[in-house]
Design a protein around this nucleic acid. Structure first.
Lengths: 337, 337
DNA sequence: GACTGGCACTCCAAGTTGCCGAGTGCCAGG
DNA sequence: CCTGGCACTCGGCAACTTGGAGTGCCAGTC
């Protein structure tokens, strides 16, 4: 009961601070929220909350601001779900419906998510590893050069040039094309090693080099760490919230230009919306920010991540439901494909 | 002779201001550059330069800073070429040599250019319109859905899904594939309208719908305004130079997220390095910045643009030669393909 | 035991003042 | 045409003051 009010105070502090971005004091709290007790009582509660590490004072004689731990408690125990209005859902659906191809879907999603959350948005392309091969095309570029074009059932298309160790005549190329294509079409990319492992052995000796390099390129293309692509948008939103980041936004922008960093941010997404607050974040330069992310995919399987990066004092309920909604629509689009 | 010294003064002002980012006064000028006259003389010259609009005072009793017109004069008449060192050239070559495909080439170029100029870098993908078709692949996705994959001789690969008006059987698809492929392979994309215009007429009546939609998708894919892609990088450099932009960097970041804006920036590139200074810039939100851009391509023809966006008080000679060098290497890589 | 009003205390933010120095324009003389 | 000198301007900095928001604590009340 007492405990209950303290949590109510914490919630009120988080909400006020997110709304105003200014330390909130005991007096303002009782005025803005009908807590039914006096400011002195609130002060006691605040002192307790501070002892427990949920809030902090930027300096003596200032109001309190939530700590990362405070936000964590808010997200875990206090934030209700904030359903999106029908109009919003419709807007999302409309916006994504006009996409012409996968690139377009991803690009539109990034724009949309950045716009509705007013944060930096991330959308990952469906992972190749989780996909099956719809089609593999092998195109000759020159005597010793081929282009592999891999089309996945998720709509993703990857290309890769291959330099052959020796010229390959038309007949041999045909053989190579037929055998490789047959081996992988309809199969899961993650099984390439098994499917293609000893393919070269059944070819004439002088063609094995070519087969080997094609096979290794295919396997490399679908390597977990290499194949992931993430599109980023809404970086201008960082600048608008500049005051948010005590320091400059430069390191944040820099971190977000690293693919590796983005991969870590969306690395362990699941069907649930996950929230990483401040220092919970694995990337050092982003420890002043929070990451809200989730996965999307066909049916049960998660094939990629989607999320946003923003200041720790963001509107968590609203952001979470936006991210969730966009992921839902992305899943739907994949399904329709 | 007098005129000559005035120009020397202008050059000195530009150089000092670019180096220090602080208004430069007459005294500092004579000290740092051996101009051989007294500060009073310089003051007279400065007053004249101000009258002519080349420099301005942020406020009375402050030093002078160059105006856009001043930079323009500097770039046109004063800036020498600043050749890159052999080591730098080698570094560029090495950096770009490891690329595995076109995406990689473009991505690496952006990173490289952003890094060496410390500005925001732009690299455009080779324009489809200026390319010829190396290969066109038509893949079935479902009864009524096809995927077109267009591979250009520049290494560019475009994909597009097509919804057919009616199911197409295997035989008809084969016919369609053969005829369309034959019509475009080896041809210039900009001639698609001529090449494909009346292709549908020679098909059986019930297949014409499918042919028409494939043809129109192809033509749409190579439409001038739609097909252009530009990759952007180094936005963190904007934040580092923040003081540079009197106002916030937000509108700049926002503008740079618009493809349309980027296209305008790289729209009219030629073989020469062009410089747009401040208000010369067509995009309103970028009138506090300068754009240095040039084209690259195979042999004589320019197939795409490359450039940077930065504060007006940038190191023009250095930036111009960096942009030029990267464009040169991009051209070379295209040639080798 | 929980809550409240009151009080002394702290400390940031914002405004005020005064001064220094860099920079200018102009002028008379070489 | 250049120069040294001089009076003047004005932004920036530092020191200082003040107002107010906020706190912690304590004695009193229900």
């Amino acid at each position: 009961m007492l405990e209950e009010r303290r949590l109510a105070v914490l919630r009120a502090i988080v909400e006020d601070y997110v709304a105003t971005r200014e330390p909130v004091g005991s007096k303002a709290l009782v005025e803005r929220h009908g807590l039914g007790v006096s400011s002195a009582t609130i002060r006691n509660d605040m002192a307790a909350l501070e002892d427990e590490g949920y809030i902090a004072q930027p300096h003596t004689s200032a109001g309190r601001i939530p700590t990362d731990l405070g936000y964590r408690a808010f997200v875990d125990r206090l934030a209700g779900v904030k359903p999106m209005s029908a109009a919003e859902r419709r807007a999302i659906a409309n916006f994504l419906a006009g996409a012409v191809d996968l690139d377009d879907v991803v690009a539109r999603s990034v724009r949309l998510l950045a716009q509705i959350t007013r944060q930096v948005a991330l959308v990952q392309y469906p992972s190749l590893v989780q996909s099956t091969v719809r089609h593999l095309e092998i195109v000759r570029i020159s005597d010793t050069r081929l282009l592999l074009v891999l089309i996945a059932d998720t709509g993703r298309v990857e290309q890769r040039a291959v330099d052959l160790p020796a010229p390959l005549d038309e007949e041999a190329l045909g053989r190579l094309r037929q055998r490789v294509t047959e081996a992988v079409t309809g199969q899961r990319c993650e099984d390439f090693a098994v499917l293609l492992g000893d393919l070269a052995d059944s070819f004439p000796r002088d063609e094995r080099g070519a087969v080997a390099v094609v096979v290794s390129t295919l396997m490399e293309t679908t390597l977990d760490t290499v194949e992931q692509r993430i599109m980023l948008g809404g970086t201008a939103n960082l600048a608008r919230n500049r005051d948010a980041f005590t320091v400059s936004i430069e390191p944040v922008l820099e971190a977000l230009e690293e693919q590796v960093v983005l991969l870590r941010l969306l690395g362990e997404v699941s069907g649930e919306v996950s929230v990483r607050i401040g220092h919970e974040n694995p990337v050092e330069d982003l420890q002043a920010t929070s990451v809200v992310a989730t996965g999307y995919g066909r049916g049960e399987s998660v094939v990629a991540g989607v999320g946003i990066v923003g200041p720790t004092h963001m509107d968590y309920p609203g952001t979470m439901s936006s991210v969730h909604a966009v992921a839902q629509y992305l899943s739907r689009i994949l399904d329709e494909n």
